[in-house]
Simulated assay, not measured.
Amino acid sequence: MSHLNPSQAAIFSPSVARAAASTAKDWSYIDTWLRSIYSNSSGSSSRSRPPSFERNPETLKALLALAAANEAADDHREQLFRVEQAALDEIRAVEKDREDRRQQQQQKQQQHQQNSEKGEGQEIDPDILASDLLSALEANLTKDGAAALDAMASVAVELGVAYPTPEVLGSKFVELQGRALELEDGLERVDLLRRYLDRESARAGAFLAELQRSASDNANNLNESTMSIGGGGSSIFALPPDLPRQNLELQRLIKSTSSRLPELTQQVLSLEKTVGLPNVTVEDVRADEEAYLDLLARKKDLDAQVRAFAGLPPDVEAARAELEALRAELRDATERRDENFEKLVERESPVKTRRRPRLD
């Protein structure tokens, strides 16, 4: 096998051989199916063969799918034909049985006419009577009545009602109307929610655009300020002219303070050792605060007592004399008040006349 090239030697692989056999089998099936399709569609021998086409894996896959779908459709049509044929045979059998029974009924009627003098009763077949009655009703229906009956039958079939009555159909219609109203309500709610989301989305988009615009404006202002600082122009962002001098002074102050910091730290430590810091606790602070509050309350009481003597002279004798004068004024005012009250009572009191004794 050394004289064979790799492409020819690969055919002897079992997996490749199986794949090639499966592909050949599929192409054979497709060719047979196409010939059957074209032979059934055209009666002439010139068009019984399928046209030439490119044979590749994609074409084979598409044709296999088409053949499978065609076979499924043929099976469905075959099943539907069988069902229709069975229904038709059943209807024919029922009609034939009904016709036989009708003939028997006619024969019985003839016999009844012959035996009517003997008093024998006539037997009536209920199925034949019902069939004849329905046929008579259907034949005597008006155009509107036939249309209404067909509509009722169609509605019953659509609703899946085996024995339709006006009440059942009406209830079904009411249920459908209720469901339709619920769906309309749901659609309105969904539409309202959609409008709200659209409005919020538009608002968010406007806010985002404003943020982007403000960000771009800030970037432009920053660039302009940078350019003004670099160019040394007369912009408001220009550096002050004495900034280098202030920077030097601050550096000198920082250096001097840093050099004095160890000395100040040493002084603080020495003061702590000589003077000492009081050991104050929270309880001591609370006690001092309570004592301070007590002193404040006592001070308020004393201030109230002192305010009672406000306006008096600082000399004790003069203060006593002024106090006696005020007491005298108070007594005079009290006496005048009492006199005025007595006069008021006498004036407002009714005068009682004294009764004279009778002289008998």
Rank of each mutant, 00 (worst) to 15 (best):
A72E: 12
E117N: 08
Q103E: 15
R101S: 03
L80P: 01
A136C: 08
E117A: 15
D132E: 14
A72C: 04
K143L: 10
G121P: 13
R98A: 06
I128W: 01
Q109H: 05
Q104I: 03
R98E: 05
D89R: 15
E95T: 09
R98P: 00
A136F: 11
A139Q: 06
H76A: 15
A73P: 00
A139F: 05
R102L: 09
D100M: 08
K143V: 13
K96T: 12
A136L: 13
K108G: 00
P126I: 01
V94T: 14
L88P: 00
E138H: 12
L80R: 12
Q79R: 14
A69P: 01
E117V: 11
H112D: 01
A86E: 15
R92A: 15
Q103G: 09
Q107S: 08
Q110M: 06
Q114A: 06
E123I: 09
Q105F: 01
G119H: 03
A72R: 10
L133C: 05
Q113Y: 07
E99S: 08
Q110E: 13
Q79A: 15
A87F: 01
E138G: 10
E90P: 00
I91N: 13
Q109F: 05
E120R: 08
E95H: 10
E138M: 06
L133R: 09
Q122W: 04
L134E: 12
K118D: 04
L134I: 09
E117S: 13
R102W: 04
N140Q: 13
R92L: 12
D127E: 09
L133P: 00
A69L: 05
A72W: 00
I128H: 03
L141V: 08
Q85M: 10
D75F: 08
A136K: 12
A87M: 06
A68P: 01
A139L: 07
L129W: 04
Q114W: 03
R77K: 11
S131I: 03
E90L: 03
A72Y: 01
L133F: 10
R102V: 01
A86W: 07
L133T: 09
H76Y: 07
N140H: 11
R101M: 04
L80G: 08
E123D: 11
I91H: 12
E78M: 11
A67G: 07
Q103H: 12
D127A: 06
H76M: 08
A130R: 07
Q122G: 02
V83C: 02
A86Y: 08
A68Q: 12
G121C: 03
S131Y: 06
N70Q: 09
Q103D: 14
L133E: 09
S116P: 00
E99W: 03
V94I: 12
S131G: 06
Q113H: 07
Q105E: 04
N115V: 01
A130D: 05
R102D: 02
Q107R: 09
Q104F: 02
Q104R: 10
E120L: 10
S135L: 13
L134D: 12
D100A: 13
A93L: 07
V83A: 14
E71Y: 13
V94P: 00
S135N: 12
Q111E: 15
A93R: 10
A130G: 01
A67M: 13
Q114C: 00
H76P: 00
L133D: 08
L129V: 05
A87G: 02
P126N: 05
Q111P: 01
R92C: 07
D97E: 14
D127Q: 05
N140I: 02
A72N: 06
Q122S: 08
L137I: 10
A87S: 11
R102H: 06
Q85C: 04
